[in-house]
Simulated scan of single mutants.
Amino acid sequence: MTEANRPDVLVLGAGGVGLSLAGALAAVAHVTVACRPRHAGAIRRDGLVMEGVWGDRTVREIACITGLEESLPAPDLVVITAKGFDTRAICEEYADVLKGRTVASLQNGIGNEEVIAEYARNVIGGTVTTNFSVVGDGHVRVKSQSSPMIFGHWSGPDVEMVGRLVEMVRSAGVLVEASTDIRSAKWSKSLLNLSVNPICALLSVQVGRAADPRLRQVIGAIVRETFMVMEAKGVRTDWTTAEAYLDHLFMVQVPDFDTAYPSMYYDIQAGRRTEIDLLNGYIADQGEVLQVPTPYNRCIADLIRFKETNGRE
């Protein structure tokens, strides 16, 4: 790819996920990231330091902004990697940039794409099952990637943008696939996050500890409630039953992340707000609307909310 043919990509809400993706894409695109001033300062001064399964290197070809007051090239593609509770605020702030463009969501939780669709012409949904962490200012680590990144058409007339995005990510050396049913893929990803992340975050344990028989009972109840909500909403995933997913969870996913702490653990430790409202909180709210009992999801969501508040007081 020649320099002139490289697309312009804007990554909004760049923390561990967004900075890591920006570092990878910098090899094949002109990348600008909107990030916190501490990251922007470090990257402008020393470059983005990357380590882990996506390669150990320092990337200097990234432009950083901390807000719209700074110069911003017209992007060919926007990728939002912010926490789900910030989606609306970011879309409002960058509404003029998003208008008429293709925007991809690479975020946890359910409901982000619906918000983005109010601002953008085309929306691409995305999932990533990868352990990202911020080591320091302008320094990220990609510890593991248990399955390919997935993108799929969510809404809008330009369905070809998915293929172009997938090819760009693949050419950057990242495992990626296109999905013909991104809604199913989003729910499949959320199953991992809502079943394991909150309980490990509450107990301050690594993901591998979720295999303890006492925790498996609680996790099993959370997953079974979620499948009842999915059935009521007409959502289908690769797993036709809760038991089939639980087998996959404990045989594949939990071992893959055995020594990792979930991102929600780091949020709680740092006194940050979590994405519980887009995970177990969402399931509990949908259960109430659909008249599906979800006491375990409601309980775990309330416990996380208490922990959030207690940590900030």
Rank of each mutant, 00 (worst) to 15 (best):
L303V: 08
Q217Y: 08
D238V: 10
I304N: 04
V205I: 15
N108I: 05
Y265A: 07
G220W: 01
E70C: 09
G152K: 08
L19G: 07
T130L: 07
I110Q: 00
R224E: 11
T309I: 08
L215A: 08
L48W: 01
G138T: 09
R273H: 02
G136P: 04
D76G: 11
P75K: 10
E69K: 10
C200Q: 06
F132T: 02
S263I: 12
V218Y: 09
V135H: 03
G125Q: 07
L175G: 05
A244G: 06
V169G: 01
L290Y: 12
Y245Q: 09
V176E: 00
V196Y: 03
T129W: 06
R44F: 00
G109I: 02
D238G: 13
V252D: 11
A244V: 10
D256L: 04
G84L: 00
V205G: 01
I80R: 02
A178Y: 05
S146N: 00
V31M: 08
M149N: 10
A117H: 03
V292Y: 03
P37K: 09
I110V: 13
L98N: 04
C35Q: 04
D56S: 13
Y119K: 01
P7L: 10
F257S: 08
A40T: 04
V123K: 01
G15F: 01
T274I: 11
V31T: 10
A89R: 14
L203H: 11
Y296M: 15
R305S: 04
G173P: 05
G23Q: 09
E160R: 15
R6P: 00
E243G: 04
N108A: 09
R236W: 07
N297M: 14
L192G: 10
N5F: 07
V292L: 05
G220A: 07
R209Q: 11
D96G: 02
C35M: 13
K307E: 04
K99R: 14
V252C: 04
V254I: 14
S147E: 13
E51Q: 15
N108G: 06
V123H: 00
E3H: 12
T2I: 12
T66S: 07
T127K: 04
L246R: 11
E160Q: 14
L194W: 08
E313H: 10
E93I: 00
L19D: 03
A22P: 10
T226A: 12
P157W: 12
V196I: 15
E70G: 13
L98Q: 01
V78W: 02
G156S: 08
A14M: 09
C91F: 07
R272Q: 11
L25Y: 06
V49E: 03
G41K: 11
